[in-house]
């Protein structure tokens, strides 16, 4: 059974259709890249999978391990293993990062019927992951993402991904705003999570990220549809020729 099956998905936002029958199948162990021009609906797809309110699904379905994802609350999806690394992570002043991480991790574990982490175990785990991602402890003492640079916010998303160990990771433009070194560190963090039980969907505009996180499949999105799919060489093609050829196809 595929991990994720998006079938003929149609989505409206404020009376306007953004996704016009999009299909995508992702199996465990695979890495998929989604590329496509600004406004083609990549973030919309990721939001609908994560359960963000404000989107009206007018047709199609999303199955996750065979279950109807659209019937689940966003928190239930997270507990089932869906993780979205946001293109624009929000700042949450007054909510300490550590409190947030612990509450989230334990909420997910509780929903799965697993025991809560003890404080020492939790701290140990966070420290390990943070060290691997070059995230200083000082950052974890601040409010969630408060005063973080663009790159730090993205690293904090990868930190959460490593901590929650989801089975589906959707990375929405993880590379935007990252300098070369930060990109390598974040990509290493992502690669460390690659496993036969886990799949990744990497949304990006740049071939460069795909040199670090090498995809099994590349999909081109245009105007709310997947207009072409191929192997990793498709990304190189796009880099050379741009999206113009797909504008008409869509």
């Amino acid at each position: 059974m595929p991990l994720l099956e998006v079938k003929n998905l149609q989505v409206r936002v404020e009376e306007r259709e953004i996704l016009h029958g999009l299909s995508l199948t992702v199996n465990k162990g695979e890495v998929h890249a989604i590329m496509g021009p600004n406004g083609s609906g990549k973030s919309t797809l990721s939001h609908v999978i994560a359960g963000k309110p404000g989107y009206e699904v007018t047709g199609g379905e999303i199955l996750f391990n065979g279950e109807d994802l659209l019937e689940m609350s966003p928190d239930a999806r997270a507990a089932k293993g869906v993780f979205l690394a946001f293109q624009y992570p929000v700042e949450i002043p007054g909510v300490a990062t550590m409190t947030f991480l612990r509450t989230a991790l334990n909420a997910q574990r509780k929903a799965r019927g697993e025991g809560e982490y003890s404080t020492p175990d939790f701290l140990k785990k966070v420290r390990e992951v943070a060290a691997r991602l070059n995230i200083p402890q000082e950052m974890l003492r601040r409010g969630v993402n408060v005063g973080f640079s663009g790159g730090e916010k993205k690293r904090n998303e990868v930190l959460q991904m490593a901590l929650f160990e989801p089975s589906l990771c959707i990375l929405d433009e993880m590379d935007s705003g990252l300098d070369i070194d930060a990109l390598r560190v974040a990509a290493d963090g992502v690669n460390a999570l690659r496993s036969p039980d886990r799949a990744m969907v990497v949304i990006t505009h740049y071939q460069r990220l795909l040199n670090y996180i090498v995809p099994d499949f590349v999909h081109v999105m245009s105007k709310g549809r997947v207009v072409k799919s191929g192997g990793k060489e498709l990304a190189l093609e796009l880099e050379a020729s741009g999206y113009a050829q797909f504008e008409d196809a869509a």
């Binding site: 609350s73 928190d75 997270a78 979205l84 946001f86 992570p89 929000v90 949450i92 989230a104 997910q108």
Partner: peptide, 13 residues
């Protein structure tokens, strides 16, 4: 939504 996408219930968030 950010908090709920990380697994917090509506009340917890």
């Amino acid at each position: 939504f950010y908090l709920r996408a990380r697994g917090l219930s509506e009340k917890e968030a």
